[in-house]
Simulated assay, not measured.
Amino acid sequence: MQYQVQGIVIRSMDYGEGNKIITIFSREMGKIAVIVRGAKKLKSRYGSVSQLFTSGQYLFFRSGQLGTLKHAEIVDSHHAIREDLHLSAYASYMAELTDRMLADQEANPYLFDQLNAAMKGLIEHKDMQIISFIYEMKIWTHAGYLPELEVCVACRREDNEMAFSAALGGMLCGSCRFKDLKALILSSGTLKLIRLFARMDITRLGQIDVKPETKTSLKNLMRSYFDAQIGVPLKSRNFLDQMDKYGI
């Protein structure tokens, strides 16, 4: 059967001498894997449409799990992302999150629009770290992993001294903080932002200025929660950590 979808390439791997298999996150069908014959050849007309982060219209035939590309047109090559180490690193992180956290052929137009807006945001020089935080929370929400951010996970009340427990899956009030001595103490600014990110639509994200120390706090919160509750190993996250470690 033949299908036409709007999609973003979130994974690309060599297949045989001249072919590639690409994973497309599509608006209509979710994640789909398609073989692009001759994509590695120098004069291939499909070489560009099979590059990572490319947004396009893809026409393919499928009789089993793996489709075969018949035609494609680029909507946005996102070449500026591939040409910049930092942009590429954060785009790779969001693409790998999508690939690892979502099931195949599970359509989610909203999440597709969020990823598409995230890619555009990177090109428009919006804060790449903030964009990745927000998109990651969209993935958590879709996968059913969003932490409790409004009330205490233990007693269900809210106070002004909330801390975040990765192990217990959300906020702890001052009275219940003893339940997790490793809970992260949050500033009012960090608490406000993490709640905002859970609701924010990336398509409406403007320029946002967040203090470096607040971004560090947000990163620690999100990393600790991901490791405690989800635990999916991500190569792209390791690369981001290496960049931070060596100040690249």
Results as ranks from 00 to 15, higher is better:
2 Q>E: 10
3 Y>V: 11
6 Q>R: 13
6 Q>D: 12
9 V>W: 04
9 V>L: 07
15 Y>G: 03
15 Y>M: 09
16 G>V: 07
16 G>W: 08
18 G>N: 12
18 G>D: 10
19 N>K: 08
19 N>L: 11
22 I>V: 15
22 I>G: 01
23 T>P: 09
26 S>R: 03
28 E>W: 10
29 M>T: 13
35 I>G: 07
36 V>Y: 01
37 R>K: 15
38 G>V: 02
39 A>F: 01
40 K>A: 02
41 K>C: 05
44 S>D: 08
44 S>P: 08
45 R>G: 09
47 G>L: 04
51 Q>D: 12
51 Q>P: 10
52 L>K: 07
54 T>L: 04
55 S>M: 13
56 G>E: 09
58 Y>V: 06
58 Y>W: 07
58 Y>G: 01
60 F>N: 05
61 F>S: 14
65 Q>L: 11
65 Q>D: 15
67 G>R: 05
68 T>N: 15
70 K>A: 10
70 K>N: 15
73 E>T: 14
73 E>K: 13
78 H>Y: 14
78 H>E: 11
79 H>P: 02
80 A>V: 08
85 L>G: 07
86 H>G: 00
86 H>R: 15
87 L>T: 00
88 S>A: 14
89 A>P: 08
89 A>Y: 07
92 S>D: 03
93 Y>N: 00
95 A>G: 06
99 D>F: 04
103 A>E: 15
103 A>Y: 13
104 D>V: 10
106 E>R: 07
111 L>Q: 01
111 L>Y: 00
113 D>H: 12
117 A>F: 02
119 M>S: 03
120 K>I: 07
122 L>S: 00
122 L>Y: 11
124 E>V: 12
130 I>A: 02
131 I>R: 00
132 S>N: 14
137 M>D: 05
138 K>F: 01
138 K>A: 04
140 W>N: 04
140 W>Y: 15
141 T>W: 04
146 L>N: 03
146 L>C: 06
148 E>H: 08
149 L>H: 07
151 V>P: 02
152 C>S: 08
154 A>Q: 11
155 C>W: 08
158 E>P: 03
159 D>I: 06
160 N>I: 05
162 M>S: 00
165 S>L: 06
167 A>H: 09
168 L>I: 12
168 L>F: 09
169 G>H: 08
170 G>F: 01
170 G>Q: 03
172 L>G: 03
173 C>G: 09
174 G>N: 11
174 G>C: 04
174 G>Q: 03
177 R>M: 11
178 F>Q: 08
179 K>M: 09
188 S>N: 13
191 L>N: 11
192 K>W: 06
192 K>T: 14
192 K>R: 15
196 L>W: 14
197 F>P: 03
201 D>Q: 14
201 D>R: 14
202 I>C: 01
203 T>N: 10
206 G>W: 12
209 D>A: 10
211 K>F: 07
212 P>L: 11
212 P>E: 15
215 K>D: 00
217 S>D: 09
219 K>M: 12
220 N>T: 14
220 N>H: 08
221 L>E: 02
223 R>K: 14
226 F>G: 04
226 F>T: 04
226 F>E: 07
228 A>E: 09
228 A>Q: 12
230 I>M: 04
230 I>C: 02
230 I>H: 01
231 G>C: 08
232 V>F: 09
234 L>A: 05
235 K>L: 04
238 N>A: 14
240 L>I: 06
244 D>L: 10
245 K>H: 12
246 Y>E: 12
248 I>Y: 12
248 I>V: 15
